[in-house]
Design a protein around this nucleic acid. Structure first.
Lengths: 110, 110
DNA sequence: TTCTTATTTGGCTAAAATAGAAAATAGGAA
DNA sequence: TTCCTATTTTCTATTTTAGCCAAATAAGAA
């Protein structure tokens, strides 16, 4: 494949990879409701704060979220709102899969 | 986080993870133009056919593509068209990042 | 059946991702 | 300054992924 296209696919994969983790999906979803500080997010996720911090750093690096210090805390927020449509499509895939399973079950019974 | 939500995030992450590789982004993009057999895709990608086959299996497992045998060949095709809007948003993220870099450079010069 | 082509699968190694614990930083308050 | 809280970074162990080669499978042709 041509180099330009290859570079583009690599860049896209880098962004997608940043979203490819359950905790990070959760974080993005949560940030859709507005800015949250790391401590709030940590409480919601329920793992070590250093782990949450690292997940946020990955999202930030990919350009998906941004951070802002407010006194002693750091608030993260979504940078690109369309990221939520993104999840809609993922939902569509999951529905398609679920329907297929349903069909398989029905066929097995028939 | 509640278990139901956790399960949902895990399911979403599984789909997203299937897309989180340059070659798989390329394959999905290519399949947007219509069904292609493994050998065609292999020629385009330029790696070992077994590698391409495994990437396709990952996409199929996630419910993103489907396969169909036609004689001696197996054709893959997109199962969920909206997967392409998906990439649009990724493009938006990349643009946002590019703009920021631009801004940083300009500030540095000023 | 045997040969040939197309594709998948198993085995192996190298590289990348993940998570927690502990140490380092940053800012505000006493 | 010293203490305290919030966050990031470093270190280390573990797990997951990626890619090539070789072997296995599948379907059609001879």
């Amino acid at each position: 494949m041509e180099t330009v296209r290859q570079k583009r696919c690599e860049a896209q994969a880098r962004v997608i990879k940043a979203l490819a983790h359950p905790t990070r999906v959760f974080l993005v979803e949560e940030l859709a409701n507005g800015p949250r500080c790391v401590c709030e997010l940590t409480a919601l996720v329920g793992t070590d704060i250093s782990t949450v911090s690292k997940h946020l750093a990955i999202l930030k690096n990919a350009g998906i979220v941004q951070d802002e210090r407010r006194g002693t805390q750091i608030f993260y927020s979504l940078r690109v709102p369309c990221i939520l449509n993104f999840f809609q499509c993922v939902g569509a895939v999951l529905e398609a899969v679920a329907e297929e399973h349903q069909a398989v079950v029905l066929n097995a019974r028939a």
